[in-house]
């Protein structure tokens, strides 16, 4: 065990001094519960979420290119769901972030959400801190915006970008999921498709109804790059909203709370009791409490 600890901290030192292999190994260890001990700086983080197929990864690919031009070092943590049946996962986000793999200024890591108790919330923060210590100046957390636990992961970022496609005329639906109140910036992607303008207008009018002018909205095309530069400036200048900070902290807290519940040692026993009807939900909640 002692040897294991020394190796870990040695590996962490090597990662911080620029060894990518060690950084990758440390991230793997964090996934399996290793808690890195180091000085925490102030990481710059962006959460990107949105429905499947909205163009999140392609858009991130565009942002990466712009940031590299500006001399930033960009790390992406791309989260994809694990199959509940096999536990396996298909991690293909990086296909859409083409062209930058060979650059020393980009680090892309695919993460399977796994179904292990606790989910990602317990370690995503550690990953971000390590990446920051290793000199990555722009850290992106990407998740598909379906399912609350997936969406909540982006709340671990300090600014949140919601990407929508043009084919969802019902962007207001997103409000129901609560993600819209978490987002600092909302983008309607695929401006190369004519219906995107309509989606953009309906988004803006629904935000007007909310009297929330602090959310900035953009119409972009990840395909041809239109609007990406403006979006990038908007991300860089994103003001801190105290109202959203509270929502963000609330989501983080809920996420940790979920983890605690799922890690509760007697959980399976309680679930069995619930399924046979021998205890009520209230009694179950009291027992866990």
């Amino acid at each position: 065990m002692a040897l294991g600890l020394t190796t870990n901290s040695h590996q962490l030192d090597l990662a911080i001094s620029g060894d990518r292999r060690c950084l990758a190994k440390i991230l793997t260890k964090i996934e399996s519960g290793f808690v890195p001990i180091m000085e925490v700086q102030n990481p710059w983080t962006l959460g990107v979420t949105g429905p499947p197929g909205a163009g999140k990864s392609t858009l991130i690919g565009n942002l990466i290119s712009e940031w590299i031009k500006r001399g930033e070092k960009v790390a992406v943590l791309a989260v994809d769901p694990s199959s509940p049946k096999s536990g396996g996962a298909l991690l293909a986000d990086r296909i859409r972030m083409q062209g930058e793999e060979s650059s020393n200024s980009v680090f892309i890591r695919s993460i399977a959400s796994r179904n292990h108790p606790g989910g990602l919330s317990l370690f995503i923060g550690h990953m971000v801190n390590v990446l920051c210590a290793c000199g990555w100046t722009r850290i992106i957390i990407e998740t598909v915006g379906s399912g609350q636990s997936q969406t909540r992961i982006v709340a671990f970022a300090d600014r949140i970008l919601l990407v929508e496609g043009p084919d969802r005329g019902d962007i207001i639906q997103a409000e129901k999921a609560g993600i819209l109140e978490l987002a600092d910036i909302v983008v309607v992607n695929k401006s190369d498709i004519s219906s995107s303008k309509l989606a953009f207008n309906s988004l803006n009018s629904s935000l007007t109804l909310n009297h929330d002018s602090s959310i900035s909205t953009h119409l972009v095309s990840a395909l041809n790059g239109n609007g990406v530069e403006n979006l990038l400036s908007s991300i860089e200048e994103c003001p801190k909203s105290s109202q959203r900070e509270i929502i963000r902290q609330r989501e983080r807290l809920l996420s940790i709370w979920d983890s605690r519940l799922l890690n509760y040692p007697g959980l399976n026993h309680i679930l069995e009791q619930l399924s046979t009807g021998s205890i009520t939900l209230e009694e179950a909640a009291d027992e866990i409490d």
Partner: peptide, 14 residues
């Protein structure tokens, strides 16, 4: 797909 269904985490490069 086969590997995913076999419980592996698969990263496809394109």
């Amino acid at each position: 797909r086969v590997l995913r269904d076999g419980g592996h985490e698969v990263i496809y490069t394109g």
